[in-house]
Amino acid sequence: MERETSIGKKADEFLQMFKKGEEFTQDLLKENERLRFKLAQLEEAVERSGDEAKIRLYEERIKITEDELNSLKERFRQVEEENKDFAAKYVEVEDENNNLANLYVASYQLHSTLDFNEVLRIVLEIVINLIGAEKFAVLLIEEKTNELIPVGTEGISIADVPKVKFGEGIVGTAAKEGESYFSENMHNNRGSISAENPIVCIPLKIKEHVIGVIAIYSLLIQKEKFSNVDYELFNLLAGHAATAIFSSRLYTQSERKLTTIQSFLDMLKEKPRR
């Protein structure tokens, strides 16, 4: 009986222990569940915070890319502007090159000979081909009579160009004052050509000494107006043509005198015939 009581007591104790174990297990399971839930929450939070970081990173990258794009656009605009500048400068350089070639050729040709007629022909060629004049005359001052005498013409007969008194009319005044004359109505005056009223008159000067003028009466049909190089050519003609004409005239005169003297000397050297 005592033994039965002891076994019953032990069974109760075991049962108590088992219940405690069950409770403990239940508690562990709950704790486990709670921790799982907590872990899941934490994992979700970590994951969410990772996405935000990525979004922030992407946003920063987009901003950098946008800044780079804007910078490139600005650089592209600047390069385009530079290109336009270069293109404009290239055209300017080409024009300048063209002008210099014209001036060089004109100057080279003017000083290529000492023959007066050749120099005169070159002056006419330059005025026709490089300036684009259709009808014009070269008049030189005759010191003895103080008149401007036509010595070469193009597109107009030399007989149709009158002699001009120094200081009279447009041609005479240009010669006297040494200043170029450009008509206000520069455009072609075809059909109404007057030898007394040229549209352009360029005095040929050696320093301040005028030796003659180039009088232009009309321009070629395709020549609408004078360009910068035309004015440069007029300046060149004013000086270089004058020098070339003057020196070729002197040379021709001295050649003639030399021939005369030489003939005279030859005559003197000849032995008298008996």
Binding site: A101, Y104, V105, Q109, E125, N129, L130
Partner: peptide
Amino acid sequence: DSPTMRQLIGFA
């Protein structure tokens, strides 16, 4: 026929 023009064109 113009030496001036021949030289100018030659240059170009």
